[in-house]
Protein backbone atom coordinates (compact mmCIF):
# COMPACT_ATOMS: atom_id res chain seq x y z
CA UNK A 1 0.00 0.00 0.00
CA UNK A 2 1.48 3.28 -1.01
CA UNK A 3 1.20 6.45 0.97
CA UNK A 4 0.81 8.40 -2.21
CA UNK A 5 -2.67 7.13 -2.92
CA UNK A 6 -4.15 8.79 0.12
CA UNK A 7 -2.24 12.02 -0.25
CA UNK A 8 -4.76 13.56 -2.58
CA UNK A 9 -7.70 12.38 -0.52
CA UNK A 10 -7.02 15.04 2.13
CA UNK A 11 -8.91 17.68 0.20
CA UNK A 12 -10.81 19.23 3.09
CA UNK A 13 -8.34 22.07 3.06
CA UNK A 14 -10.39 24.81 4.63
CA UNK A 15 -11.30 23.15 7.93
CA UNK A 16 -8.87 22.96 10.86
CA UNK A 17 -6.18 20.45 10.05
CA UNK A 18 -2.46 19.86 10.06
CA UNK A 19 -1.50 18.13 6.88
CA UNK A 20 1.78 16.59 5.80
CA UNK A 21 1.85 16.36 2.04
CA UNK A 22 4.43 14.17 0.30
CA UNK A 23 7.12 14.80 2.89
CA UNK A 24 10.60 13.68 1.89
CA UNK A 25 13.76 14.00 3.95
CA UNK A 26 17.17 12.99 2.67
CA UNK A 27 20.32 13.21 4.72
CA UNK A 28 23.71 13.40 3.10
CA UNK A 29 26.11 11.22 5.03
CA UNK A 30 29.71 12.12 4.55
CA UNK A 31 32.59 9.85 5.40
CA UNK A 32 35.78 11.37 4.09
CA UNK A 33 35.46 11.99 0.37
CA UNK A 34 32.63 9.56 -0.12
CA UNK A 35 29.12 10.65 0.54
CA UNK A 36 25.88 8.80 0.26
CA UNK A 37 22.32 9.82 0.68
CA UNK A 38 20.12 8.38 3.39
CA UNK A 39 16.44 8.52 2.52
CA UNK A 40 15.07 8.98 6.01
CA UNK A 41 11.51 9.77 4.96
CA UNK A 42 10.06 8.99 1.54
CA UNK A 43 6.83 10.55 0.39
CA UNK A 44 4.82 10.53 3.59
CA UNK A 45 1.38 12.14 3.74
CA UNK A 46 -1.24 12.28 6.46
CA UNK A 47 -3.73 14.71 7.93
CA UNK A 48 -4.21 15.45 11.61
CA UNK A 49 -7.64 16.64 12.61
CA UNK A 50 -8.85 18.12 15.89
CA UNK A 51 -9.96 15.50 18.36
CA UNK A 52 -8.30 12.67 16.50
CA UNK A 53 -5.10 10.78 17.18
CA UNK A 54 -2.93 9.26 14.53
CA UNK A 55 -0.34 6.75 15.68
CA UNK A 56 2.86 6.48 13.72
CA UNK A 57 4.33 3.06 14.42
CA UNK A 58 7.65 1.65 13.33
CA UNK A 59 10.97 0.33 14.47
CA UNK A 60 13.97 2.48 15.39
CA UNK A 61 15.44 4.22 12.38
CA UNK A 62 12.25 4.00 10.35
CA UNK A 63 12.01 7.79 10.13
CA UNK A 64 9.36 8.41 12.79
CA UNK A 65 11.35 10.98 14.71
CA UNK A 66 12.43 12.74 11.52
CA UNK A 67 8.76 13.22 10.70
CA UNK A 68 8.20 14.59 14.21
CA UNK A 69 11.07 17.04 13.81
CA UNK A 70 9.79 18.19 10.45
CA UNK A 71 6.26 18.66 11.78
CA UNK A 72 7.70 20.68 14.69
CA UNK A 73 9.70 22.79 12.23
CA UNK A 74 13.00 21.72 13.71
CA UNK A 75 14.01 20.41 10.33
CA UNK A 76 13.07 21.48 6.85
CA UNK A 77 11.76 18.75 4.56
CA UNK A 78 13.82 18.04 1.44
CA UNK A 79 10.58 18.23 -0.49
CA UNK A 80 6.89 18.19 0.20
CA UNK A 81 5.05 20.61 2.41
CA UNK A 82 3.24 21.01 5.68
CA UNK A 83 -0.12 22.71 5.57
CA UNK A 84 -1.81 24.24 8.57
CA UNK A 85 -5.55 24.73 8.06
CA UNK A 86 -4.98 24.27 4.36
CA UNK A 87 -2.37 27.00 4.00
CA UNK A 88 1.32 26.27 3.40
CA UNK A 89 3.25 26.88 6.63
CA UNK A 90 6.09 29.36 6.81
CA UNK A 91 9.73 28.73 7.59
CA UNK A 92 10.35 32.02 9.37
CA UNK A 93 8.94 35.27 10.58
CA UNK A 94 5.63 35.91 12.30
CA UNK A 95 3.89 33.10 10.42
CA UNK A 96 6.33 30.62 11.88
CA UNK A 97 5.50 32.05 15.30
CA UNK A 98 1.81 31.45 14.72
CA UNK A 99 2.57 27.93 13.48
CA UNK A 100 4.41 27.28 16.73
CA UNK A 101 1.45 28.57 18.71
CA UNK A 102 -0.72 25.95 17.03
CA UNK A 103 1.68 23.02 16.72
CA UNK A 104 3.70 21.89 19.70
CA UNK A 105 5.84 18.89 20.48
CA UNK A 106 6.40 16.59 23.43
CA UNK A 107 9.88 15.14 23.32
CA UNK A 108 10.94 11.61 23.98
CA UNK A 109 13.40 12.15 26.78
CA UNK A 110 11.97 14.01 29.78
CA UNK A 111 15.44 14.12 31.29
CA UNK A 112 16.87 15.95 28.30
CA UNK A 113 13.98 18.16 27.27
CA UNK A 114 13.94 20.34 30.39
CA UNK A 115 16.84 22.70 30.93
CA UNK A 116 18.54 21.61 34.17
CA UNK A 117 19.43 25.19 34.99
CA UNK A 118 15.92 26.59 35.03
CA UNK A 119 13.04 25.92 37.41
CA UNK A 120 9.81 24.38 36.13
CA UNK A 121 8.19 27.82 36.15
CA UNK A 122 10.62 29.03 33.46
CA UNK A 123 9.67 26.22 31.10
CA UNK A 124 6.00 27.13 31.26
CA UNK A 125 6.40 30.90 31.45
CA UNK A 126 8.46 31.28 28.31
CA UNK A 127 5.94 29.86 25.83
CA UNK A 128 3.22 31.92 27.55
CA UNK A 129 5.26 35.10 27.29
CA UNK A 130 6.30 34.45 23.70
CA UNK A 131 2.84 33.67 22.41
CA UNK A 132 0.78 35.87 24.70
CA UNK A 133 2.90 39.00 25.12
CA UNK A 134 0.00 41.02 26.49
CA UNK A 135 -0.41 38.96 29.63
CA UNK A 136 0.76 40.58 32.85
CA UNK A 137 3.21 38.78 35.12
CA UNK A 138 0.40 38.04 37.53
CA UNK A 139 -1.75 36.50 34.83
CA UNK A 140 1.19 34.43 33.62
CA UNK A 141 1.80 33.16 37.14
CA UNK A 142 -1.85 32.15 37.36
CA UNK A 143 -1.67 30.39 34.00
CA UNK A 144 1.45 28.49 35.06
CA UNK A 145 -0.35 27.22 38.15
CA UNK A 146 -3.37 26.31 36.08
CA UNK A 147 -1.24 24.37 33.59
CA UNK A 148 0.47 22.44 36.37
CA UNK A 149 -2.86 21.57 37.95
CA UNK A 150 -4.15 20.38 34.59
CA UNK A 151 -1.32 17.89 34.25
CA UNK A 152 -1.97 16.78 37.84
CA UNK A 153 1.10 18.35 39.35
CA UNK A 154 -0.58 19.77 42.38
CA UNK A 155 -0.26 21.73 44.48
CA UNK A 156 1.21 23.77 41.65
CA UNK A 157 3.04 26.14 43.99
CA UNK A 158 5.29 23.35 45.24
CA UNK A 159 6.23 22.27 41.71
CA UNK A 160 6.69 25.59 39.94
CA UNK A 161 9.90 26.54 41.69
CA UNK A 162 11.57 23.16 41.62
CA UNK A 163 14.27 22.27 39.20
CA UNK A 164 13.91 19.39 36.73
CA UNK A 165 16.35 17.17 38.64
CA UNK A 166 14.05 17.28 41.65
CA UNK A 167 11.23 15.63 39.70
CA UNK A 168 10.71 12.03 38.66
CA UNK A 169 10.57 11.01 35.01
CA UNK A 170 6.78 10.89 34.97
CA UNK A 171 6.49 14.29 36.62
CA UNK A 172 8.93 15.75 34.13
CA UNK A 173 6.98 14.40 31.20
CA UNK A 174 3.84 15.98 32.65
CA UNK A 175 5.71 19.29 32.72
CA UNK A 176 6.67 18.72 29.08
CA UNK A 177 3.01 18.15 28.22
CA UNK A 178 2.04 21.31 30.09
CA UNK A 179 4.68 23.20 28.15
CA UNK A 180 3.23 21.96 24.87
CA UNK A 181 -0.23 23.12 25.97
CA UNK A 182 1.02 26.51 27.18
CA UNK A 183 0.85 28.44 23.88
CA UNK A 184 -2.67 27.09 23.33
CA UNK A 185 -1.63 24.46 20.81
CA UNK A 186 -4.25 22.72 18.71
CA UNK A 187 -1.93 20.00 17.44
CA UNK A 188 0.57 18.02 19.49
CA UNK A 189 3.40 15.94 18.09
CA UNK A 190 4.25 13.38 20.76
CA UNK A 191 7.53 11.67 19.86
CA UNK A 192 7.60 8.44 21.86
CA UNK A 193 6.41 10.35 24.94
CA UNK A 194 6.58 7.39 27.30
CA UNK A 195 9.36 5.20 25.94
CA UNK A 196 11.87 6.59 28.45
CA UNK A 197 9.55 6.19 31.41
CA UNK A 198 9.09 3.33 33.83
CA UNK A 199 6.55 0.83 32.57
CA UNK A 200 4.47 1.41 35.68
CA UNK A 201 3.86 5.08 34.99
CA UNK A 202 3.52 5.02 31.22
CA UNK A 203 -0.21 4.51 31.30
CA UNK A 204 -0.73 7.39 33.69
CA UNK A 205 1.01 9.77 31.32
CA UNK A 206 -0.79 8.39 28.26
CA UNK A 207 -4.18 8.56 29.98
CA UNK A 208 -3.47 12.17 30.88
CA UNK A 209 -2.57 12.94 27.29
CA UNK A 210 -5.74 11.24 26.05
CA UNK A 211 -7.88 13.09 28.56
CA UNK A 212 -6.41 16.48 27.62
CA UNK A 213 -6.93 15.60 24.00
CA UNK A 214 -10.62 14.93 24.59
CA UNK A 215 -11.05 18.12 26.61
CA UNK A 216 -9.23 20.36 24.16
CA UNK A 217 -10.13 18.56 20.97
CA UNK A 218 -6.42 18.34 20.16
CA UNK A 219 -5.09 16.67 17.07
CA UNK A 220 -2.33 14.33 18.23
CA UNK A 221 0.38 12.58 16.27
CA UNK A 222 1.40 9.79 18.60
CA UNK A 223 4.73 8.32 17.60
CA UNK A 224 5.52 4.99 19.18
CA UNK A 225 6.80 1.51 18.63
CA UNK A 226 4.25 0.04 21.00
CA UNK A 227 1.33 -1.41 19.09
CA UNK A 228 -0.83 -2.02 22.15
CA UNK A 229 -0.92 1.64 23.19
CA UNK A 230 -1.19 2.73 19.55
CA UNK A 231 -4.33 0.63 19.25
CA UNK A 232 -5.84 1.90 22.46
CA UNK A 233 -5.07 5.58 22.10
CA UNK A 234 -5.38 6.28 18.41
CA UNK A 235 -8.05 6.38 15.77
CA UNK A 236 -5.75 5.64 12.90
CA UNK A 237 -2.45 3.81 12.67
CA UNK A 238 0.27 4.45 10.14
CA UNK A 239 2.93 1.76 9.99
CA UNK A 240 6.29 3.01 8.90
CA UNK A 241 9.15 0.97 7.56
CA UNK A 242 12.39 2.36 6.16
CA UNK A 243 11.00 5.83 5.63
CA UNK A 244 7.81 4.73 3.95
CA UNK A 245 4.31 4.24 5.22
CA UNK A 246 3.63 0.63 4.37
CA UNK A 247 0.19 0.33 5.90
CA UNK A 248 -2.45 2.69 7.17
CA UNK A 249 -6.00 2.44 8.38
CA UNK A 250 -8.30 2.52 11.40
CA UNK A 251 -6.41 1.17 14.42
CA UNK A 252 -8.60 -1.87 15.02
CA UNK A 253 -8.37 -2.89 11.40
CA UNK A 254 -4.60 -2.54 11.24
CA UNK A 255 -4.09 -4.52 14.41
CA UNK A 256 -6.68 -7.22 13.82
CA UNK A 257 -6.30 -7.59 10.09
CA UNK A 258 -2.82 -6.50 9.06
CA UNK A 259 -2.21 -6.50 5.34
CA UNK A 260 1.48 -5.79 5.04
CA UNK A 261 4.14 -8.34 5.93
CA UNK A 262 5.99 -5.84 8.06
CA UNK A 263 2.91 -5.09 10.17
CA UNK A 264 2.42 -8.81 10.74
CA UNK A 265 6.04 -9.14 11.81
CA UNK A 266 5.65 -6.23 14.21
CA UNK A 267 2.54 -7.77 15.72
CA UNK A 268 4.20 -11.12 16.16
CA UNK A 269 7.23 -9.52 17.76
CA UNK A 270 5.11 -7.74 20.36
CA UNK A 271 5.11 -9.63 23.62
CA UNK A 272 1.63 -10.74 24.58
CA UNK A 273 1.15 -12.80 27.73
CA UNK A 274 -2.23 -14.05 26.59
CA UNK A 275 -0.85 -15.42 23.37
CA UNK A 276 2.17 -16.90 25.11
CA UNK A 277 -0.16 -18.75 27.47
CA UNK A 278 -2.18 -20.06 24.57
CA UNK A 279 0.96 -21.17 22.77
CA UNK A 280 2.09 -23.04 25.86
CA UNK A 281 -1.27 -24.78 26.06
CA UNK A 282 -1.04 -25.74 22.42
CA UNK A 283 2.43 -27.14 22.94
CA UNK A 284 1.22 -29.14 25.96
CA UNK A 285 -1.84 -30.46 24.23
CA UNK A 286 0.06 -31.27 21.08
CA UNK A 287 2.93 -33.00 22.92
Amino acid sequence: MSAHGTATSGTSATSASLEARNLVKDFRLRSGVKSRILHAVRDVSFTLEPGRTIALVGESGSGKSTIARMMAKLEAPSSGEILLDGAPSATGGSRLASYRRDVQMVFQDPFGSLNPFHPIRHHLERPLRIHHPRLSSKEIGARVDELLERVRLSPASTFADRRPHELSGGQRQRVAIARALAPGARFIIADEPVSMLDVSIRLGVLNLLAELQRQEQLGVLYITHDLATARHFSDEILVMYRGEIVERGPSERVILDPQHEYTKTLLEAAADPDRLGRLRDEVRNGG
Partner: peptide, 13 residues
Protein backbone atom coordinates in the same frame (compact mmCIF):
# COMPACT_ATOMS: atom_id res chain seq x y z
CA UNK B 1 21.90 19.07 20.26
CA UNK B 2 20.22 18.74 23.66
CA UNK B 3 16.50 18.31 23.56
CA UNK B 4 15.88 21.32 25.77
CA UNK B 5 17.41 23.52 23.09
CA UNK B 6 15.12 21.92 20.49
CA UNK B 7 12.22 22.41 22.91
CA UNK B 8 13.10 26.09 23.26
CA UNK B 9 13.05 26.42 19.47
CA UNK B 10 9.68 24.72 19.29
CA UNK B 11 8.45 27.10 21.98
CA UNK B 12 9.45 29.94 19.66
CA UNK B 13 12.56 31.31 21.39
Amino acid sequence: TREYVAAARVAGE
